[in-house]
Design a protein around this nucleic acid. Sequence first.
DNA 1: GACCAACATTGATGTAGATCAAATTATGAC
DNA 2: GTCATAATTTGATCTACATCAATGTTGGTC
Lengths: 243, 243
Amino acid sequence: MTLPILRDFKCSHCPIRHRAVCSHCDADELSALESIKSYRSFSAGETILWRGEPLEYVASLVTGVAALSKTLEDGRTQMVGLLLPSDFIGRPGRDEIEFDVTATTDVTLCCFARSPFEQLMQATPHLTQRIMELALDELDAARDWMLLLGRKTAREKIATFIEMLVRRAPSEAGTNTSVIPLSMTRDQIANYLGLTLETVSRHFNALKKEGVIEFTDRKFVAVKNLKALRIATGDDTDIQVAL
Amino acid sequence: MTLPILRDFKCSHCPIRHRAVCSHCDADELSALESIKSYRSFSAGETILWRGEPLEYVASLVTGVAALSKTLEDGRTQMVGLLLPSDFIGRPGRDEIEFDVTATTDVTLCCFARSPFEQLMQATPHLTQRIMELALDELDAARDWMLLLGRKTAREKIATFIEMLVRRAPSEAGTNTSVIPLSMTRDQIANYLGLTLETVSRHFNALKKEGVIEFTDRKFVAVKNLKALRIATGDDTDIQVAL
DNA sequence: GACCAACATTGATGTAGATCAAATTATGAC
DNA sequence: GTCATAATTTGATCTACATCAATGTTGGTC
């Protein structure tokens, strides 16, 4: 009954395995996807989708980083999601989305036209189930972030952010020290964490002074002490292990 | 392709229509649900599900209010969801959940044993699609709440909370003034909004002084000026109308 | 209706992080 | 390389909300 979390559809030309696709689907079903796909590129800063805009595609992020964000009347904004390679964009069955999607770095998408994709979903229930699983994953992530936004201190937010990058970044297992691209400005990080860019800068440097992290460039963090970083997140240790 | 948001499965004995159920399913499929259901009751304050506990049921909330919440190592907690009648509890395809579910008031659940429910999902793709839609709805709600937690002032949080109650409470349409049960203590509201109970109390009374709301009892709000309340939420007016 | 235990209000004070304001350091175009 | 612009750091100050501390209210029980 329980589908494992799979990343095992490797379509031709894409260097990633699309998370949306179900391993239970047979070859014919998967090749149906090949025939409806196309690629689109966006450069850093470009808006991929505006809130309320009609959705013509669902897509998989192939390279780069993109952000989902929401804005208040007076311009305050909050990032509500971060898309890394293999993440799925789009809402089958919805005509529009409730947030903006922006390219944080240069981005390539592998797009599937919505209506054939939805027809394929009708025909292959496993695919629908897979998308449901992805939505539930995202929901769990969103709820973790609600805890962060509502209750964590600035220091805990920063530590959690870096710990998340370590966890999600494609990296060689076993290494205690990892160098990770931030791919975001201090301002964008602040938007993600519900802080200001000054506070982000101050706490980055505090963690650096303590020897927990190090900056090679301003764009890359090296985690020197993963255990200290995890303690600084404020999360239950059990969760840390589980993740 | 797009299924409308439906609330139209009325199973016998339940005074609500279960949101999980799809209107495209035929009578046989729906009666299969009848045969696997059972009822469970919880009194206010009881924990319905602990984080990490194995999930034996999926359920629909029939009466009362329940809360989803997450806790940090040192005890700080954040509510990450509020369940009102007709809301769905459970994660088909998951063995456990990442948060606690607690009865805020006395609660009745209509439970469906997980494994037959999941078998039914396999057999009736529409049901899977419906659950996916619910997950996407919850995801949208979670993201709205992320904006609230990350960027709104205490006043805006309180106004948004009351506005949400107005929107979600079953009420006669057209009335400009509505009396709504809070069903939560100041402390629980504070947990939902990422505030302290004192701040909740102060801003409730500020809005009261301004004539925007009124308290009959401490447990019921009457909205006297819905327009002023909506302005106080800080949201884009477009969204307000759309909701 | 008197008592008790939750719950809520109100006030005084403290503080984390926002805001304002330079100074410093990258980055990229020519 | 040099300049211009954007991003970042650092410092000084301010403020919304938290925290601490009473006091007041409500509702249930006997």
